[in-house]
């Protein structure tokens, strides 16, 4: 707040005072007062007026500057109404009242949506657990009555299972609350269970699996990680070439982090599209050819889950050569303390 601006706001009173002074001067002249009196009166009045004005300016300046600084420092700016101090002047009081009321009403509104979303997520989770029952039963029936037909149905059931799992993690990825559980996990176990989940389609597609150097402990939620790796492997299967298909999975330990590499020799991704693969709904050229039905959700979800878990996720690819996905597990301070 600048004094000039404040003065401008009070221009009318200033003009009125000058107008009053002129009247007083005229009266003084009519009654032929002393010259000293004629000079003293306007100066005194103007001086007092400016002093009063300046005090009032200072009050507002400290108050508003304080408010602006707090706003600047706030991470969630909408919480400013919680931090407004009581002003000593009436227009400030109005501002405080307005901020408080809008803030509260906005919070109520946001909470309403939070609740609706939470409720929906709970429903989705419940539904997913329900739907797993008939799938489990169907799979049992297939196992007890193995024919070519039921085995083909089994393949489709596997697809359904994958889509359901995706929906579950999608619902989980959208909530603010912490939905995961970090503990010590062995990379080899995580990778193995992801591969086993895709056993049928890997074998059917005759994909060579090469895993090595995975005896490393990381701190993460192994269920979430299994899901993420599972999605990446599924992509590798989906976008594989016709011959000599291969997926290589290994890890490297570096100073501050453990990097898990998942490499395939599939059809790769066009150069211009690599930066966009983590965008929601992005399917790219590969997603549209050869009837590969891409939803553009898989990698988007992986990235989102990795962000929540505090893992890095990077993708490099060369058209017709293959794709390499890097999952980066940081070594937290927790681990360092333990090692000491």
């Amino acid at each position: 707040m600048k004094f000039r601006d404040f003065l401008k706001d009070n221009l009318i009173t200033l003009i009125l005072i000058i107008f009053a002074l002129i009247t007083i001067e005229i009266l003084l002249m009519i009654y032929s007062f002393d010259i000293l009196m004629k000079i003293y009166t306007p100066i005194a009045i103007l001086l007092l007026y400016f002093i009063g004005l300046y005090i009032s300016y200072l009050k507002r300046k400290t108050y508003y500057n304080n408010l602006l600084n707090t706003l600047e420092d706030l991470d969630q700016k909408y919480l400013i109404f919680e931090l407004v101090k009581d002003p000593s002047f009436s227009d400030g009081k109005i501002l405080k009242y307005v901020l408080e009321e809008t803030g509260k009403s906005m919070l109520e509104n946001v909470n309403k949506y939070k609740y609706i979303q939470e409720d929906y997520k709970e429903y989705i989770e419940l539904w997913i657990h329900e739907i797993k029952m008939p799938i489990a039963t169907s799979k049992m029936i297939i196992e007890n009555n193995k024919t070519e037909v039921t085995e083909s149905i089994d393949e489709e059931l596997n697809k359904i299972e994958n889509y359901i799992e995706q929906a579950l993690f999608y619902a989980r990825s959208n909530t603010v609350e912490k939905d995961y559980y970090i503990k010590k996990a062995n990379l080899k176990e995580i990778v193995n269970s992801s591969i086993l989940k895709n056993k049928d389609s890997l074998l059917q597609n005759k994909i060579n699996i090469d895993i090595h150097d995975l005896e490393i402990e990381v701190y993460t939620d192994s269920k979430w990680c299994t899901f993420i790796i599972n999605q990446i492997i599924q992509n590798s299967i989906k976008y594989s070439k016709e011959e000599d298909k291969k997926i290589e999975i290994y890890a490297k330990e570096e100073k501050e982090k453990v990097i898990l590499y998942i490499k395939d020799n599939g059809i790769g991704i066009k150069k211009g599209e690599i930066t966009r693969v983590f965008e929601k709904g992005f399917t790219g050229e590969n997603g549209r050819i050869n009837g590969r039905k891409s939803t553009g959700i898989g990698l988007y979800l992986c990235k989102k889950l990795c962000d929540k878990l505090g893992l890095g996720l990077e993708l490099n690819s060369k058209k017709d050569i293959g794709t390499e996905v890097k999952m980066i597990f940081p070594k937290g301070s927790f681990m360092e303390i333990k090692n000491k």
């Binding site: 193995n192 086993l196 056993k199 074998l203 005759k206 994909i207 699996i209």
Partner: peptide, 13 residues
Amino acid sequence: INYLWDSESFIDD
């Protein structure tokens, strides 16, 4: 092959 995969040896043909 199925048996080997289930015991976590992912070998091919």
